[in-house]
Nucleic acid binder design. Structure first.
Lengths: 210, 210
DNA sequence: CGTCACAGTAACCATCGGTTATTCTGTGAC
DNA sequence: GTCACAGAATAACCGATGGTTACTGTGACG
C-alpha cells in the first residue's frame, strides 16, 4: 500500500507549504531563506527541493490558492446588490489592497516581477491569468459605478478599459508605496485607508464628468 | 601637497561612481554585483569600500545629483507662467514619470526601498529629503491647478496634502507598473503617456468638485 | 635615504539558492 | 523473521553574493 510513507510525505509537503506561507507573509518573499523555511517546517533545506523545484515555484504554489480565495471574496462583495455601486466598488478595492499589503509583499512581488501587461492576451503564468481576471472584475464594477449601468458592457469600450487602467494605477501606487514598510499593517491601514477611499471617489467623480 | 596621490584617488572614486551608474541604469540595482562594478571601474571589489560604505550608499551617492537635476527641470517647468496651470502640472508629472522610468529602476528602487513616509518630519537619507521636496513641488502645483490660486497656500491645508498624496499614488502606480518591463522605454511611453495624462486630468477634475 | 600614511588587495567570512552523493528507513516478497 | 529495494531525507558541497581584515606596495616628505 505504501500508505504510511505517502502520508508522511504529504504531511511534510504541507508543512513546508504552510511554513513558507507564514514566513512569506510575515517577512516578505525576498527576506525569507530556504533554510529558514526548512527549520520552521522541521526538515533540512534540501528536502524542500524534493517537493518544489525552486523558491520561485514554491511562491507560486502558495500564491495561487490565496489569489483564488481573494477572487471569491471580490465576487461575493460584487454580488451584494443591496449596496450602492459606489460602496461595492470601495469595498472591493479595499479588499484587494488589504490583501496585497497583508500578504507581506508576497503578491506584490508576484505582480511586479511578472512584467506582464494587464491586457496581455496570452500570459504564461497562471498567477497572471488570475490577476487579469481580478483586473476585469474591478474594471467592470468601476464601469457600472461610473455609467450607472447595472450590467457590464457587452463590448468593452475603450473608455471603460482606460478607466480601469487609471484605477489600477492608483491602487498599485498605493500598494507599492506601503509595501515593505516596517509599520504594523493594521496601524498602517487605519491611517491610510481613508485616503485610499477618498482617492477612488475622486477618480470616479472625475470619470463621471465625461 | 599630496596632490598626485589625491588626484589618483579622486579619479578612482569617480571611475567607480561612473561604472556603477552605468551598470545600475543598464541592469537595475539588485542585479549588479560589487565585483562587477569593480571590474568595470578597474579595481578590486574591496577598493569600493574605501570610498563608499556599502552598496546602498553607493546607490544614494549616484542618485542624488540626477535627482537634483530633475528638481531643477521641474522648477523650470513650474515657472513657465505663460502656460495654464493644468498644462504645467501635466508637464511636470510627465517629466517626473519619464525620469523614473528612463533611469532604469534606479530611482524606483530608491523610492521603494526608502520606506520613508512622504510626510516624515526627520528623514535621515538625503535622497528622501529631495524626494519630499519633489512631492511638495508637485503638490503645490496641483493645489494651484485645483483651486485656481496662483500662489501656494501659506499654511498647507490638510485637503491640499491629501490631494497631493492621491496624485502621488497614481504616479507611483504608473511607474511601478512599467518598471522592469522589457519593452523599449520610448515605445512604452508613446503607448502609455496619453493614459497617464488622462488619469491626471480625471483626478484634477474630481478634486475640483470638492 | 628612511619612514610613515594610505591606496589597494588577497584571503577570508557568513550566507544565499541550488546540486549531488550518501545514508537511513519503511515496505513487500520470500 | 529477514532481506533487498525504493524512495525520503540529509550532509557535504558548489559558485555566488555583500562585506571585513590583515597585509602589501608605493608615493610623499623630513
Amino acid at each position: 500500500m505504501m500508505t504510511r510513507r505517502k502520508q508522511l510525505s504529504e504531511a511534510m509537503k504541507a508543512s513546508i507549504r504552510d511554513a513558507a506561507a507564514a514566513l512569506f507573509a510575515e517577512k516578505g518573499y525576498p527576506s525569507v531563506t530556504m533554510r529558514e523555511i526548512a527549520k520552521a517546517a522541521g526538515c533540512s533545506h534540501t528536502a524542500i527541493y524534493l517537493y518544489y523545484n525552486s523558491k520561485e515555484e514554491l511562491l507560486q504554489q502558495i500564491a495561487i490558492p490565496s489569489l483564488l480565495q481573494l477572487e471569491q471574496r471580490l465576487l461575493e462583495l460584487r454580488g451584494r446588490r443591496e449596496a450602492v455601486p459606489e460602496d461595492r466598488l470601495l469595498a472591493v478595492c479595499e479588499q484587494y489592497v488589504v490583501f496585497c499589503l497583508t500578504s507581506g509583499s508576497l503578491q506584490t512581488v508576484l505582480f511586479m516581477s511578472g512584467s506582464v501587461r494587464v491586457d496581455d492576451p496570452s500570459p504564461e503564468l497562471e498567477v497572471n491569468v488570475i490577476r487579469i481576471r481580478l483586473f476585469t472584475h474591478i474594471s467592470q464594477m468601476l464601469h457600472e459605478t461610473v455609467t450607472g449601468a447595472s450590467e457590464a458592457p457587452d463590448r468593452e469600450s475603450a473608455a471603460a478599459i482606460d478607466n480601469g487602467r487609471m484605477l489600477f494605477y492608483y491602487l498599485q501606487g498605493f500598494i507599492s508605496t506601503y509595501t515593505g514598510h516596517l509599520e504594523p499593517t493594521a496601524e498602517l491601514l487605519e491611517r491610510t485607508l481613508p485616503i485610499l477611499r477618498q482617492g477612488i471617489l475622486t477618480l470616479v467623480r472625475g470619470m463621471k464628468q465625461n
